[in-house]
Nucleic acid binder design. Structure first.
Lengths: 100, 100
DNA sequence: TGGGAATATCGATAATTGCCGATATGCTTG
DNA sequence: CAAGCATATCGGCAATTATCGATATTCCCA
């Protein structure tokens, strides 16, 4: 898992969008009754509906983003909630800022 | 030419390295007699020698980096000198900082 | 406990990328 | 002008990526 892998994960329009959508879930996704939106994140289905790609594609994209440390996943019941991983994101930002 | 294109240009180990080598040409490349190193940048041949790939590959990499605005090219005689384009690089950094 | 949801994984194909060798272009200089 | 550099462009093949449909897995609930 190198820095290039993180860049590669972001070198795709959809994956980049997903990460930015996750900055403000409320403005990009229908509000839910429960508090999951803020706490655990968004589930795969919601993200899939928004970006319009195949379910399997979105699932793979999300697990790639997780693998490189940009998001975290929480399984609750039959849902997997994804949200931004600020630690990983900030590490990446710092790398870009300093080393590029 | 979108932001994703810039990210794609950096999503390759060699191209990423080239950009960072260009931060400190003196420490990465043999000093030349003339002042080109600081002024115009480094020529393709020097960069090629350093990264060990085919001439055509390096030429293409450099012109890609230029196309997305990360470096500038100056033709002097039979040499093309490449150096970092701080304007483009800073714009990219700002994008990462703000939008990611 | 068996059928549905939600998600993950697998297999396949088309598109893109990583590199290379060969050739073309442009300068420069005898 | 011809020969020789340095660089650019082209055509090609192998590897990787984008994306899909089908299937597997997990979990929930009547």
């Amino acid at each position: 898992m190198t820095q290039v892998d993180v860049i590669k994960a972001l070198s795709n329009k959809t994956r980049l969008q997903i990460l930015t959508w996750l900055k403000e879930p409320e403005t990009h996704f229908p509000v839910q009754d429960f508090g999951e939106l803020k706490e655990a994140g968004l589930c795969v289905g919601q993200i899939q509906a928004k970006c319009g790609l195949n379910q399997s594609t979105v699932s793979e994209y999300l697990s790639l983003l997780q693998r490189v440390g940009l998001v975290t996943a929480t399984r609750i019941g039959q849902w997997t909630y994804y949200k931004r991983n600020d630690e990983g994101i900030n590490a990446f930002k710092q790398f870009i800022q300093q080393d590029i």
